[in-house]
């Protein structure tokens, strides 16, 4: 193909044609309906959160001598991304922040190519504390835990 040739199309999208028909749903109603539809998945979501934390513990437990390589970090990142989605979707605010902290730390390790298991283990303990089904933390305790996680991130150069 000639690199200099540029073609411009104005495609007729079926999505646009359908969406523009009369009737339909307002944004507010659509979002309300979606939230309602999601709420029926909360129980399954809670179970998946706990399973995901368990899976991360399993992955970390296999790391030899507390040092973790990029393949392990990638596996943990995949789980942690999933955890962020679930925590935010079901409005677990502290869990969401702790999971993002975990992701930021993993990302920093990924960038530096050097992973230390200790701060990750601490994050996993925090995630357990904040997971659904655990004894709820008081607001102050939750803040303290998140502050400690922030200190850890700072120590390891994870900017987030």
């Amino acid at each position: 193909m000639n690199n200099a040739l540029v073609k411009t199309y104005f495609p007729h999208l079926r999505l646009a044609a359908l969406a523009g028909r009369a009737g339909g749903t307002t944004r507010a109603s659509a979002i309300e309906n979606a939230m309602l539809a999601l709420s029926v998945m909360r129980e399954e979501g809670d179970a998946t959160i706990v399973e995901t934390i368990g899976a991360m513990e399993g992955i970390l437990g296999e790391a030899p001598d507390g040092r973790i390589g990029k393949d392990v970090l990638q596996s943990l990142l995949t789980c942690a991304d999933q955890l962020v989605t679930l925590a935010a979707m079901f409005n677990y605010e502290s869990l969401d922040q702790a999971a993002r902290s975990f992701c930021d730390l993993l990302e920093a390790f990924f960038e530096s190519g050097d992973g230390d298991a200790a701060p990750l283990v601490i994050h996993l303990r925090a995630l357990h504390l904040m997971a659904p089904g655990s004894e709820p933390l008081s607001g102050e305790s939750g803040r303290t835990v998140l502050e400690e996680l922030a200190r850890l991130r700072h120590h390891y150069g994870a900017t987030g």
Partner: peptide, 28 residues
């Protein structure tokens, strides 16, 4: 970027459905 919210997803779908954005074809 995940986590995607119903608001965020609805707005993106609405944007795609309502904006006339041309398609470009080049060699690359």
């Amino acid at each position: 970027r995940k986590p995607v919210s119903p608001q965020g997803l609805f707005d993106r779908i609405a944007w795609v459905a309502r904006a006339d954005r041309p398609f470009i074809e080049t060699g690359t």
